[in-house]
Simulated assay, not measured.
Amino acid sequence: MNKNIASVFVLLMLVLGSVLLNSCEIESSDNGSLDGFWHLESIDTLATGGRSDYSKQRVFWGVQYKLLSVNNYEGGRFYFRFRQTSDSLILLSPYKNNWHQDVENGGDIPLTEINDTLRQCGINHLVESYYKEKMNGDKMILRTKELRLNFKKF
């Protein structure tokens, strides 16, 4: 009798475990090499050949799943949705990170124009399109009509 009860209990636990695992939906990213934390090393101005060195500044782009964060530690934090293809990256739906909604004036704020902080991070338009010149596990180079952004994986 005890053997039958133990067998039924084990079978019940297996069925319950299977149901719980099947009810969980695991979303995975298909961002490839884009996923991760990127340090902006420099920005080249294509029209003039000028270069701004960012290697000693704290400007980072972070990519996880469907969200891209831009952190300029001296100017602010922003979030973008993005789309990518094999040769392009398009940033859209920009928001300023205004911390938590449970504080006065908190919560993310949709942007209606690009500010100087974002321009310093290589973003000049509310919808910004980049051509991927190079993207691998440790280096990313993005280009617009005006700029070339050089990143190193952090």
Score class of each variant (00 low, 15 high):
26 I>Q: 12
101 Q>C: 05
23 S>W: 02
148 R>W: 08
146 E>F: 06
25 E>S: 14
91 L>A: 02
20 L>I: 10
18 S>I: 07
52 S>G: 03
141 I>C: 07
63 V>G: 01
63 V>W: 00
74 E>H: 13
113 E>C: 07
134 K>C: 08
139 K>H: 10
101 Q>I: 08
66 K>M: 07
30 D>P: 01
97 N>P: 03
86 S>E: 15
105 N>C: 09
95 Y>F: 15
141 I>R: 04
103 V>P: 04
18 S>R: 01
42 S>N: 02
139 K>W: 07
97 N>F: 09
154 F>I: 07
129 S>L: 14
35 D>V: 00
13 M>I: 15
31 N>V: 02
141 I>T: 15
35 D>E: 15
17 G>T: 10
46 L>M: 02
99 W>A: 13
42 S>A: 08
110 P>H: 07
6 A>T: 14
85 T>G: 10
1 M>L: 14
61 W>E: 06
58 R>C: 04
36 G>R: 02
99 W>P: 05
140 M>G: 00
35 D>Y: 00
130 Y>K: 10
25 E>C: 08
73 Y>F: 15
124 N>K: 09
16 L>Y: 14
22 N>C: 10
137 G>I: 05
101 Q>Y: 12
99 W>C: 10
15 V>H: 06
117 T>G: 08
131 Y>W: 09
114 I>W: 06
104 E>T: 09
79 Y>D: 00
96 K>S: 12
140 M>L: 06
3 K>L: 12
130 Y>I: 05
69 S>P: 03
154 F>G: 13
65 Y>G: 03
91 L>V: 00
84 Q>I: 00
79 Y>F: 02
152 K>R: 15
25 E>R: 14
92 L>C: 06
80 F>N: 13
75 G>W: 12
144 T>C: 02
150 N>P: 09
63 V>A: 00
124 N>L: 15
105 N>I: 04
153 K>D: 10
131 Y>I: 12
77 R>M: 13
1 M>I: 10
6 A>K: 14
128 E>L: 05
3 K>N: 12
115 N>T: 08
72 N>E: 13
41 E>K: 11
139 K>V: 09
116 D>K: 03
106 G>T: 07
82 F>H: 03
45 T>H: 01
49 G>F: 00
127 V>T: 15
107 G>M: 04
77 R>Y: 14
83 R>K: 13
23 S>Q: 12
49 G>R: 00
38 W>D: 04
90 I>P: 03
26 I>D: 03
109 I>T: 10
92 L>G: 05
61 W>V: 10
48 T>Q: 04
15 V>A: 15
67 L>N: 01
60 F>R: 05
128 E>T: 11
136 N>T: 03
90 I>T: 06
52 S>Y: 08
33 S>T: 02
88 S>K: 11
120 Q>E: 12
